[in-house]
Design a binder for these strands. Structure first.
Lengths: 131, 131
DNA sequence: AAGAGTCAACGACGCTTGTCGTAGATGTCC
DNA sequence: GGACATCTACGACAAGCGTCGTTGACTCTT
């Protein structure tokens, strides 16, 4: 086992990761400004820097310091991270039942008609592949 | 606005809530012992007591202190809490997309054949009701 | 080359979480 | 009524998190 299972990102770290996934490799300043756009919270520049440094320490982002202005990049894919986070919540709150998770997801009115159709397609594809 | 939107339970608090949901109203000692059964972690009696006191303070559980040995009960239903937690994760990590959540849930091999059938039934029921 | 701007690094502070030790109150048993 | 057990309450503590202020290094402009 060489995969060390990186620590879960915290709330603030996840917000930064989302910027990194959307924008690709970015500098501290870029992350800071993009974050201001998508957040109601107003986070200071040095706070973002510190968070990025912590995340580098933990290995959840990678840093290119070949230039004076460092460039940060997410170490794990968005999909992978989503899976880890959902797995964790599923175990902690849903007794490990994927069915319960789906049931709750559907019960939220965010699930529109198009979303339902999309989910049905996913289900079909998954069932066929599972055969 | 009388609904104050109770704070999210922490990891340790959620573990306790799960005992409460399964066993119904319980004393500290009962929670402590049941927890020892379902957890690998060995949590001390006073730790459980303190957690329960904190949770009472936050309003996450309700305490009946009519007897010397207090009895604790979850203030919110399991389903309601699951919904709140999933909503939060969906917003923070999935951009609010229920479809993405379902896709990730399905991608975990926990989803067995029976689970898939169950999910399909949920989907049918939900679609019909939405009509 | 001086001054202004940009940047990473360092250290600190307040808060929350989870962990108990200890004390004090309330029973129970002989 | 004394000894012992059980239970809650109080307070402390370490670790993690999110927040910055400050400092020193580097760069650019004039």
């Amino acid at each position: 086992m060489t995969t060390h299972a990186l620590p879960q990102p915290t709330r603030a770290e996840l917000a930064i990761l989302r910027v990194l996934w959307k924008q690709g490799p970015s500098t501290v300043r870029q992350v800071h400004e993009l974050l201001r756009g998508t957040q109601d919270k107003d986070t200071g520049y040095t706070t973002v820097l510190k968070l990025l440094q912590n995340m580098t320490e933990k290995g959840i982002v990678q840093r290119d310091e070949s230039e004076r202005t460092h460039v940060y990049e997410a170490a794990l894919s968005e999909t992978r991270t989503q899976r880890d986070l959902l797995r964790d919540l599923m175990d902690r709150a849903f007794g490990g039942s994927a069915t319960s998770v789906v049931a709750q997801a559907l019960s939220m009115k965010r699930a529109s008609a198009e979303e339902l159709a999309e989910i049905r397609r996913l289900l079909d594809a998954h069932e066929k592949r599972g055969k």
